[in-house]
Design a protein around this nucleic acid. Structure first.
Lengths: 362, 362
DNA sequence: CTGAAAGCGCTTACAG
DNA sequence: CTGAAAGCGCTTACAG
């Protein structure tokens, strides 16, 4: 059987040892690059390996070493640009360190997330990075640390246990966005999120299970309260996918009195708000102002370009991977919770608040 | 040590066997769900497993069965929405079938792709899905089939060997886009791609290493030739990242005679063309028409919304995974090359070709 | 420096 | 139905 043709079976250490006339241990030493081997023997083994097109079986190696050089990642949806970019950050850092990454989508469902964690653990990943769908239901995450493997939370925190986490300062971001709007005279400021919730309206004290959303709402209300706006929660809308972001948008801007500004919790929501406002004949930013979370390229090319809250998404992913790697190498890690700052990018979708002229007008 | 506390060592089949008072073989039979076991013994084993919080070691299982239930995926860049969406398709199909997926980015560099394939093979993936960076340098792909593992090419073909592939009919797509432009009176039609190439200009007979790009150029030229346009390759621009898509765009529309329409090989290029035209004071579609490959959501909200070539990207990924799975189950697979059709989505960026009024005007 | 043996955690024949 | 043994392809002490 010539080397060009499909081999019946891949060559193993034993095969190399036989051909090189050494013991399996010796062959393994040169192939695995550990221990001491004489020059002459090494050459013989290497020649045999070359001849038989030897490739190591990483699984067998993992069985012995207890390390798979693999990192598991659980995100909501890799199709979501946020996670795609974060994944790139994770991948780059992992690859550079010789780690492969196994990816599973949770679709933001805790049950799926739990199953994913189990699969990944069974596959002996060395560490896990997860963007928890809920900050409340996180018992399954304990199984990771219980298995003695590093866990890093991506973008979202978890209640109870204190895990390593790499997040963004969503509260400050929301405060900054809201203040920018307040500065322009807005007082009826809406916040739209598609995060699932029993009631689409928000009442103080409501438990928001996703930490990013909870923080943003806190930030919006904090800024509004500080500005003396009364009952600012009136314009907060949760679970907007249920009735449609377009419908929710329409109601907000036709409310009495209407919201004069909208903060969209992600760029997809912003896109629908944008088109809905346009189809309603409302001008941006003259009639309604808009600020979006996230800064995908397209937000800079719309007319007007959108004012956005830019998050260091790639860095978030990279930092999560770095943290996991540090834990694996037992390096001392300074802090458990790494929080990135965000940046308000002023473009053209925020303008002076229009005067309220009663029910008939705006 | 109570079950709530970190276990020193995870329970194994041997541990369960000891506690349940059966042999390892018997414990393994019930835990691995194979072979025959009596009701009574099964219960005892299950109870022991429960008590010790037993979790199977997928690696050990793979060692024996020769199947890892893992699929390797090599794409150019997961941050690219095209691959993010395709990855979602792959993931969904793989997960549903009980497979995990390991992802590696090649950055469209063949060397990195080659290394990725090696790593994945070493990790004993059952099958491989790769979007080859080059159709020309594909020798490393042979190692996959040589290892007896299914290989499915995603989005791009490879020269020589005939591998399974799931692609899109790029030639027809380019023909359709070009004909739409011709129908509107355009004859100086440009095509811009960032695909790397020694010469940014295109000469008939040039070898384009990426099959998608080669097909698109073929399609554009075919339609233009059929329409009797002379030397239509004049407006084709390769490797546009080198000098900048904005610069390339500016030159094309200020050429004498200028291009009156541009086909952008992906949506990122389209975005830059869009902003460049605007900053040049050129109106879309009155002065210049634009058609983009790919249909991300934002292309529908620009002013004007873009006319695009929509590719069934998710389906492409899903089909690739399905094909890999079929090969693994040795089901008869009808054809080796699955080609998806594309759809021209007419929106607002194509208009009548402006009259050419000589060097001073347009 | 080199080798024989045991072991990682499972599965797979082979007996009984 | 159940068990003792061998084996998957490596690594890891332990001798020599």
């Amino acid at each position: 059987m010539s080397p060009q043709h499909p081999a019946r079976r891949a060559a193993t250490v034993a095969d190399i040892a036989r051909v090189a006339n050494v013991s399996k241990a010796t062959a393994a030493r040169v192939l695995g690059e550990y221990g001491q081997v004489s020059e002459a023997v090494r050459d013989r083994v290497l020649a045999a390996a070359e001849q038989l097109a030897y490739r190591p079986n990483a699984l067998a190696k993992s069985m012995n070493t207890g390390r798979s050089n693999t990192i598991g990642v659980v995100v909501g949806d890799i199709e979501n640009p946020f996670f795609a970019v974060a994944m790139r950050g994770i991948s780059d850092v992992a690859s550079a360190a010789g780690y492969s990454v196994i990816l599973i989508n949770s679709d933001e469902m805790v049950d799926a997330e739990e199953a994913a964690v189990e699969v990944l653990l069974d596959n002996q990943v060395d560490a896990l990075i997860v963007a928890p769908a809920s900050s409340a239901r996180v018992e399954h995450l304990a199984s990771v640390t219980r298995a003695g493997r590093p866990l890093v939370l991506l973008d979202r925190r978890a209640n109870g246990e204190s895990y390593d986490s790499v997040t963004v300062d969503n509260r400050s971001a929301a405060v900054a966005a809201t203040e920018e709007l307040l500065r322009n005279g807005h007082r009826r400021i809406a916040f739209i999120t598609t995060h699932e919730h029993p009631d689409p309206a928000y009442t103080r004290g409501d438990t928001i299970t996703m930490s990013t959303i909870a923080d943003r709402i806190d930030g919006v209300l904090q800024a509004l309260d500080a500005a003396g706006v009364e009952a600012p929660e009136r314009y907060i809308r949760l679970d907007a996918r249920r009735r449609g972001v377009d419908t929710v948008t329409r109601e907000l801007v036709h409310d009495d009195p209407p919201a004069t500004a909208i903060i969209a919790s992600d760029s997809l929501i912003a896109m629908t708000v944008f088109t809905t406002l346009r189809s309603e004949g409302l001008r941006l930013p003259d009639d309604v102002s808009l600020i979006a979370f996230d800064n995908p390229d397209w937000t800079a090319v719309t007319a007007p370009p959108l004012t956005v809250v830019e998050q260091p998404i790639y860095d978030l992913g990279a930092a999560a991977a770095r943290r996991a790697l540090q834990r694996l190498s037992r390096q001392p890690v300074a802090e458990a919770a790494q929080v990135f700052g965000v940046r308000l990018v002023n473009r053209g979708s925020v303008g002076e608040a229009p005067a309220y002229v009663g029910e008939t007008g705006r």
